[in-house]
Every structure is written in C-alpha cells, then in structure tokens.
Write a protein that binds this DNA or RNA. Structure first.
Length: 233
DNA sequence: AAATTGCTCAACCGCGATGGC
DNA sequence: GGCCATCGCGGTTGAGCAATT
C-alpha cells in the first residue's frame, strides 16, 4: 500500500494555470487569506485544483512582491555563498533574497549557476572543486564576511571566519546523499584549511580541517555523512 | 522551411516534519 | 504515545520555446 493521495486525483485539474484560475485564487486569498488550510482552499475558491498546487501557485507566482526575471550579480554571489555554506536548502537561501522563491532559485542554480561553476572548475589551471565559488564572491565579499539569518533567526557567516546557526538541523535528519555530497563538496572547495563552524542551537562546534574531517556522530539514516565531520562539544 | 536538439521554468511528486486529537 | 491530516521542502518532469543543423 502506498501513501494516500493528498486529493482526489480524478477530479483535480493538472497542468498550467489559466488566467481565470489565477485571478480567482489571488482574489480569494487577498480577501480571506488562506484560512490556514490549503487542502480546503480550492473548494472554497471554486477551483478544481489540488491544495498543494494552489499553495505552490500562490507562493511562486501570485504572491505580492515576487520578482521574476534576471538575477543580479549580487544575487548570484549570495546564492553561491549560501550554497557553499548550507547546500541545497533553497528555502533558506530564498529567505535571503527578497522577492525570490525557492523554486526560482533552485531552477536558476540547476540551469545556469551550476554550469557556470562547472565551467570555471574545468579551467586548466584549477583543480576540480577548488576556489571557483570563492572567485565569484571575491569581488564583493572580500572586505567583510557575508552573513545572514534564517527564518529562525539563526545567524550564518561566510566562512572566512566562522559559521554559526542551526547546523545540527542542517546535518541531521534526512539529508539525502546528494545534498550531503554537495554540501561537503562545496565545503571542501570553499573552506579555509582550518575552519570552524559553531552551531548556535546546540552550542556544538564542528571542525573541518584541511577540507576533510572525521565524523563521530551523524543522524542521517543512510549514513552518507559518516566519516566526514566531527562534532566537538 | 523543416527537423532536431537544447534550454528554461512552471508544475508535480513523494517524503519527512509538525501539530492536533 | 499513536494516528491522521496537513504543511513545507527538495528533486524531478515535461511542455513550450529558442537555437542550431
């Protein structure tokens, strides 16, 4: 038995949204709010759509102050920096770029920035995974480390010095091997040789020495992050 | 001009987290 | 503490468009 579907697939419309549907949803939410229940929303609005679909449409397209189109150099740099620090946590990255959605950033990274990185990494004088992210950042962040806060008000600093925040929450739980890989690959390419993270929520320090470290604990179920980082109380 | 290939991005899917009962 | 409904996230897909052959 699989997971129960979130809605009645047979009676739900899929695919691109029409302008009429957009208008209905936008008008309703602007007047009544979401009511804290996306699943019930389509019925109230009179749409044959899945609640999840409505939520996505609102968050990624209809919400006020959404920015579409070209990413600026500054945004590029922020995305690269955060990706190097926290990996593919698009929602956290998006929270640092007003008007941008996690979906937007994810798409932008996958289609453009990632290629840019790879192109730079393949240049002959550079070893793979080395420096490319840093080079992108250098122009704007050399004078002061980049820092930001996530939605829980945890602070993060670009690792010219330290990184603080809820690192345990980033590393624990269901890190897929892909995201963990990218996280550590990025760390490897980006870190100063002896870099230290501090997790503000657990007050743990995480040391990464020379781009490689050893792990003594990891809650990831697939053990993909074993032997990569050590937690020092 | 037609066919093919590549790219972009909106939307979908499935899963873990969370909160209420 | 267990169950269930819902939310939110990250990965993936595929339609539509643009560029190339």
């Amino acid at each position: 038995m699989g997971r129960a579907p979130c809605c009645d697939k047979a009676n739900v419309k899929k695919g691109p949204w029409s302008p009429e549907e957009d208008t209905k949803l936008k008008d309703y939410i602007e007047q009544h709010g979401t009511g804290g229940n996306w699943i019930a929303l389509p019925q109230k609005v009179g749409l044959r759509r899945c609640g999840k679909s409505c939520r996505l449409r609102w968050l990624n397209y209809l919400r006020p102050n959404i920015k579409h189109g070209q990413f600026s150099d500054a945004e590029d740099k922020i995305i690269c920096s955060l990706f190097a620090g926290i990996g593919s946590r698009w929602s956290i990255i998006a929270s640092q770029l007003p008007g941008r959605t996690d979906n937007d950033i994810k798409n932008y990274w996958n289609t453009k920035l990632k290629k840019k990185m790879m192109a730079m990494n393949s240049s002959p004088e550079r070893k793979p995974h080395q420096v490319s992210l840093l080079s992108i950042l250098q122009s704007s962040t050399s004078s002061s480390p980049l820092s930001f806060r996530d939605s829980n008000n945890n602070s993060y600093c670009h690792p010219h010095g330290s990184f603080s925040g809820s690192l345990s929450s980033l590393l624990s739980g269901n890190n897929s091997s892909a995201s963990a890989d990218s996280f550590f690959q990025a760390q490897e390419s980006f870190m100063d040789p002896n870099c230290q993270f501090k997790d503000s929520s657990s007050n743990m320090h995480v040391c990464v020495v020379g781009g490689e470290a050893t792990a003594t604990s990891c809650s990831s179920s697939d053990a993909s992050c074993n032997n990569q980082i050590s937690h020092v109380m």
